[in-house]
Amino acid sequence: MSEPFTFATLQVEADDRGIVCCTFNRPEVRNALNLEMVQEVRRLLEQLAARDEVRALIFTGAGGQAFVSGADIAELRERGRAEALQRINNSLFREIEQFPVPTIAAVRGWALGGGCELAMACDLRVAGESARFGQPEVRLGIIPGAGATYRLPRLVGMGRARELIFTGRIIDASEALAIGLVNYVVPDDEVLAKARALAEAIAEGSPLAVRFAKMALNAAAEMSTDAALTLETIMQAVLFEDEEKYRRMSAFLERRRARKS
């Protein structure tokens, strides 16, 4: 997979299995999310969505001290009502959530405010032992405005979400795992390896089936039960006549016959 990616705030690597790793690269400010980074991530998503060979997208932070420490406060302080209504970060995280293939946040160090919201917009989260998560916005006179009031309750339950948002309390990796905010906690030096292992496992599946599964899971959170089940049925009908399904099931049956012989 070629790598024609050139960005000022991101480092992007892609391998021949279709696994892309995007590193937020502003370590001098703990990878704070500024407008330039938002625009570059959006451009990257647009480029990758057009590539059928992409199987998974990993996000991580440079420098080891932070995934994304939050929105750039210097920029945020100057934003007014008009900028809030533009949904600058909110709309980007929605794009990440709806990205066609699974996304994985590989988190070391700080993931606060917008950084935590970005991680929650990903499908899976791998945390290093140094990871710290929180929504401290109320301490700055604002609310979590980029999806935390929507996604955090769905991950950890309404009661815990209320506590974390109302108090702005920062939690460590072990607590994040216990309440369901992250999928795995590993030593810091194993975070990317674990994220890549997950991405490789995803890449083993049928590309169309994985994309449909993500689409169905996203829709299930926002549709009625009947509508979600109807969508699932339609997707399954398409997959039942997909050549990939015949190839994979035939290979499975051949392996089973070989084991019996």
Rank of each mutant, 00 (worst) to 15 (best):
E28M: 05
E200H: 01
D72C: 09
S91Y: 06
V138N: 11
E78P: 03
G134T: 08
A71S: 09
D172C: 10
F252H: 11
A127D: 09
Q47G: 04
R87G: 02
L118N: 01
R77V: 14
V107E: 01
Y246F: 07
A176E: 01
N90I: 02
L57E: 02
F99Y: 08
Q98V: 02
E28N: 08
L253C: 10
L10G: 05
T9I: 06
T167Y: 14
G18C: 07
L181H: 02
A258T: 12
I202Y: 09
R17P: 01
D72N: 15
A195V: 05
G205H: 08
L118V: 01
A74R: 15
I104F: 00
I179W: 05
R55K: 10
Q11T: 09
V191D: 02
D226V: 12
Q135A: 07
L112W: 11
G61P: 03
P207Y: 10
E254S: 08
A49D: 11
L48M: 01
L253N: 12
V20D: 04
A201W: 00
A105V: 06
R94I: 00
F166H: 14
Y246D: 00
E40W: 01
S91G: 05
R79G: 06
C21P: 08
A32V: 09
F133H: 02
G157R: 13
L33H: 11
Q39A: 12
I234C: 09
E137V: 05
Q86E: 15
A56Y: 04
P153L: 15
L57V: 02
E53S: 13
L92C: 07
R79T: 05
L76Y: 03
A66N: 03
A201R: 00
A227H: 14
V38W: 04
F7Y: 15
F67G: 03
